[in-house]
Design a protein around this nucleic acid. Structure first.
Lengths: 252, 252
DNA sequence: CGCAAGTTTGAGGTAAATCAACCACCGTGG
DNA sequence: CCACGGTGGTTGATTTACCTCAAACTTGCG
């Protein structure tokens, strides 16, 4: 049952990291999202030049990073926080397609010169690194190596998407909610506090209505599975969540 | 040398054996799925050698091309027919995650040396081209070019997945059904005849029950949107489908 | 032919949607 | 200080779309 996370986490790279850090440049070597290991593809000489194309960036909750249809000028690696990937139907309903968090790479469209396909909005305060598309020259060896690394990530995105499609919009609502909590718990901060989505975000992610989202949450609160700390903060009993999922998997 | 991936005949699911129908040089230049354009990346000298690694292959409806967890030895381009990408939950429920048809590339896991993530089963008779992973040497220029082309396809898969997640498991059942019909219509053969899925396939794709799938279909049949030609054949009035989708998008 | 697997149709139950009231919180302004 | 509206959240009553259970029917096949 060790299904991969919707948001790819941890799996730390144990490869030797180049000790290199120009003044003012982002501390790539210390970066929390090493698993991307983009720069492992570069050798000692190429790296310093590459770092000129890397810029740290911050978003407040609610800020839009990318809008569907826009030309994408850069790739971004998410270092902290959660963003939602969303899209709108013909009828104007929002559908949150998945969440992405630390370790994910977004904006891969920058490499294929195609417009962004989804809106990308910060759910929490977010820190990212902006990687200019000029970091990935199409016809040099180093550029190709980087592009390969990036596109490898696309496969992980596909997996994340599949995971979302498997659990977030299928089966009884209770199960979807539990899966969401499991995901949020995985992204808890050092103190074990998770982001508590707005009810309409839950609603548009799980394809349920706001009232039912609220009711589900109330039920789980009363069951002691979660504790609401403040408007946007939640403490999740991950064990209880796992147990609840287990239990409801059994009664078939 | 390069052992073919396991292909399980539906009838012999319990006693799997290798079933590699093939032979005959593939006419890549005439291939119907040119949009993949994999070999555009190769020059005239590299091409003939490359073709040694390409083998045509046929599946009967119900045959399994890949099983989740298996090591993947080859990539496949789908030339004709439809396959379902499916996975099972903890509780053993099948979830059809999406359908793939002509023009798609499956088995990209072959390049990342990761096990297959989903089952891949033929819904209809299927023709594919098997591309040995040795076609894609990691450390040559030609190999890298091909890998890039393949991974570019991964982005299209992601888009397909998103599309599926947007429409197949969200909103009222009627809409999901219509979206499915739209997809099937897109894959109609030259005579405009589409594959009619089994009810349990519809059920596991749209996350509804078999009886409701049946009822939906009956309703659409009576409305003249579709005509059932035989057990597995369907004629779809694509215009009517579009219109119906339009209509129900409006009443918000 | 008879059996099994798949499909359709019906009747009744239920989870979630809908509709709607109420509440908590917050910044603004009198 | 309280009145105020605005936004987001909860909770209740009612309806409904879909599920469940079950029986009949259709198709293919040994």
């Amino acid at each position: 049952m060790n299904a991969p996370d919707l948001i790819l986490s941890a799996a730390e790279a144990t490869r030797p990291w180049l000790r290199l850090q120009a003044a003012g440049a982002p501390a790539c070597t210390d970066c929390s999202v090493r698993q991307i290991a983009l720069f492992a593809a570069l050798d000692d000489e190429a790296l310093p030049a590459a770092l000129d194309h890397v810029h740290p960036l911050r978003l407040a909750a609610g800020d839009t990073l990318l809008r569907a249809g826009q030309r994408v000028e850069s790739l971004y690696t998410v270092r902290r926080g959660l963003l939602r990937v969303e899209r709108f139907t013909e009828a104007g309903e929002r559908r949150i397609v998945r969440l992405v968090g630390a370790g994910s790479l977004v904006g891969a469209e920058a490499l294929s010169d195609t417009p962004a396909r989804d809106d990308l909005v910060a759910c929490t305060p977010v820190e990212l690194c902006r990687l200019s598309r000029h970091l990935f020259p199409a016809h040099t060896e180093a550029g190709q190596a980087l592009r390969l690394a990036v596109l490898g990530q696309a496969q992980r995105d596909l997996e994340a998407m599949t995971e979302a499609a498997m659990h977030f919009t299928r089966g009884p609502v209770r199960g979807r909610m539990l899966h969401l909590l499991a995901l949020l718990a995985r992204h808890a901060d050092a103190e074990g506090v998770s982001w508590l989505p707005r009810r309409d975000e839950i609603s548009d992610l799980l394809d349920i209505t706001v009232p039912t989202a609220s009711r589900q949450l109330s039920a789980l609160r009363e069951a002691g599975v979660v504790r609401v700390l403040s408007q946007h903060k939640l403490r999740i009993d991950a064990a209880a969540v796992r147990q609840a999922l287990q239990a409801q998997a059994l009664d078939d």
